[in-house]
Amino acid sequence: MSDRILIVRTINVEEMGPLLDACRSRWPSARICVLTSPNRREELCSDGRIGEAIEYSASGSGFGSPWNDGRDYDALVVPIRNARGWGYGNVWESVAAVTAKSFWVAAWSHNLRSVSLRRMLFRARMERFLGFACGIGARGFAYLFLLRCRLRKNRKGS
């Protein structure tokens, strides 16, 4: 296993600094690779703490399609903007095939916490199910919302 860690997804510069510092203190000699969108790559390359910025190209915004560069990593880190890690199912599903010795979330983008890939993928499936279930109610609500505005218009017009 090579001495290399992978940070999956990028966050803003203020949060990226503490995240890189946290990674550097846990894995002092590791080369830090960051998987990022093409438009952030140049900006990341200029940061001396980042060893490699890898482009993740997806059709839409955010993660969705599977990604794996075939390399082995010491650790895979997903920075999250909450404490528990909910809401990042698509990210975990995208990198599920990456070979890493350990998996981590960076709570609030800097507090490293070890997690199990299996557990995160289970959460991803739950999120998907929730999305499906909420979709039914959301569709009804959207039509109701639009109808209400139309009714108002007719009432004003009459």
Binding site: W86, E127, G131, Y143, F145, L146
Partner: peptide, 26 residues
């Protein structure tokens, strides 16, 4: 509501409502 193209307005709003509902639960 104001600016989405008429043909896609309902679908876009529905998709965003779904996101908000999921986020509320998570």
């Amino acid at each position: 509501l104001r600016y989405a193209p008429t043909a896609q307005k309902a679908a876009m709003m529905s998709s965003y409502f779904r996101e908000l509902l999921v986020c509320s639960l998570l």
